[in-house]
């Protein structure tokens, strides 16, 4: 492990130096504030630093994309957020964005163009896949995942929402681990229960929580690592693991974290 300090310039700093980064890293609210997701955010930065991609974040100029407002039916609030964000992005002449969250990814990629914000948007799993394909990222020099049973949980807004099924799997395929698919995977994947603004409310009454239902799929795979690609899935899956008292046996890790560990970054 090396402990080089992270280099994370903000757009404002870059602009002051008259520089333009290759790509903007859209951190997202969970990635900024949620303690668990913050680690993933730092890991995404580590990857970017490691491969030497010039990037920047918006820092305090970033604001919620409006995703939870839109899914909950508050189009008004969504558009207020979207238009304000588009103004910031356009002021910095942003062309390319990588997000750490499938919800931010979906919203900026698909719903900002209608309001005048046109950018090339990728999710961090797609970035990792690209870097692997280009030979810039491998799985060496760090923790070995060899022989470990890993299963991947498809986030709805990455998978069904945008047909990104292969990129996160590509990041796992380089590990030489034992990849096992859940019974419900890819386009049949079961939601973690957080989407559609459910993250911010109590579920309606029913037989059980959705993340607990998802745990039956996870346990069935006998995987010791559950790979996630969304901060909300991360929360729900970890709660599910806790609910089953399996914290000692099952780790929930983001694709970015796995990549960082495998490369000893």
């Amino acid at each position: 492990m090396n402990y080089e300090p992270l280099t994370v310039p903000t757009m404002a700093e870059m602009a002051a130096e008259g520089k333009q980064p290759e790509i903007l890293f859209w951190v997202g609210c969970a990635g900024s504030f949620d303690e668990r997701a913050q680690k993933i955010t730092r890991d995404i930065c580590k990857i970017l630093n490691h491969v030497g991609i010039s990037f920047a974040v918006l820092g305090t100029e970033e604001s919620c994309t409006g995703d939870p407002a839109k899914r909950a039916g508050n189009e008004f609030l969504f558009q207020m957020q979207a238009i304000a964000n588009i103004q910031v992005l356009d002021a910095y002449q942003i062309k390319k964005i990588v997000t750490g969250c499938p919800h931010c990814f979906n919203t900026i990629k698909n719903e900002y163009p209608g309001l005048g914000g046109n950018y090339e948007v990728i999710h961090h799993s797609q970035l990792i896949q690209q870097l692997i394909d280009d030979g810039k990222l491998k799985a060496e020099g760090g923790e070995s995942f060899k022989g470990k049973r890993i299963t991947y949980h498809d986030p709805c807004y990455l998978g069904r929402g945008n047909n990104v099924y292969e990129a996160p799997r590509a990041a796992l395929e380089v590990l030489d681990a034992e990849l096992v698919e859940m019974k419900r995977c890819k386009s049949n994947g079961l939601c973690c229960g957080a989407g559609g603004a459910q993250m911010f409310k109590e579920p309606e009454k029913g037989k059980k929580d959705i993340n607990v239902e998802r745990m039956t799929d996870i346990l069935e795979t006998k995987a010791t690592v559950v790979a996630a690609a969304c901060p909300f899935c991360m929360t729900m899956l970890r709660d599910g693991v806790k609910h089953e008292n399996k914290e000692q046996d099952i780790q929930v890790l983001d694709i970015a974290e796995i990549t960082v560990r495998a490369n000893g970054l």
Partner: peptide, 22 residues
């Protein structure tokens, strides 16, 4: 959640000034 997004730009009650604390 709507109130938080509207007032501090995040669905939770965190200050926007702390956005880069991670």
């Amino acid at each position: 959640m709507f109130g938080n997004v509207e007032n501090n730009g995040a669905p939770w009650k965190y200050s926007n000034a702390d956005r880069l604390n991670w």
